[in-house]
């Protein structure tokens, strides 16, 4: 099963490599990874999506918790949560297709954020499935480049991940 683990860790050099290294060292799998500092400059928030049986996920969270740089973590998929990914995609946009691409982007609530005479750069947010569906819709016109952030997430309701 797929899990989204969100981690608050010390914003220190080497902390990221310890987390990433742990996954390869213990043969755990990383689907996506996303990391940035938080409102507290001493902390970074790292969100990783991984796939595994419950026993493996239990080991992953235990080993992550053991890392001295990891302050706190939560498995978002244990409860109701919001997950988002941002994607920037360049597609070929020529002649009549320019209108069609614009209409498709509107349907997906995506925005065209840059244009040239021959291509559009489109920004879209959502969960992974929505982004995949948009890419599939764009395939016929020609996808030139894709940049995805990986999943970021937060729990619904009153639950807060903080110190």
């Amino acid at each position: 099963m797929r899990h989204i683990i969100s981690i608050l860790m010390e914003n220190e050099p080497g902390a990221l490599s310890r987390v990433v290294g742990l996954f390869s060292q213990r043969n755990f799998n990383i689907e996506t990874l996303n990391v940035a500092p938080t409102e507290d400059a001493t902390l970074s928030r790292l969100t990783v999506t991984t796939v595994g049986e419950d026993r493996v996920i239990e080991q992953i969270t235990k080993h992550l918790n053991k890392l001295v740089d990891v302050v706190k973590l939560v498995d978002l998929t244990e409860g109701s949560h919001i997950e988002r990914e941002l994607m920037l995609v360049k597609v070929k946009a020529l002649g009549a297709q320019r209108d069609e691409i614009k209409r498709t982007a509107d349907i997906f609530r995506a925005q065209i954020v840059d244009i040239t005479p021959s291509l559009y750069t489109i920004q879209i947010t959502g969960d992974g499935g929505k982004l995949d569906a948009f890419l599939a819709a764009m395939q016929p016109v020609g996808v030139l480049e894709v940049a995805r952030t990986g999943v970021s997430g937060i729990a619904r309701g009153e639950k807060v991940l903080s110190l």
Partner: peptide, 11 residues
């Protein structure tokens, strides 16, 4: 003392 040792190889 190490939670990750528990249920690692044997439940």
């Amino acid at each position: 003392i190490d939670p990750s040792s528990v249920s690692k190889t044997v439940r």
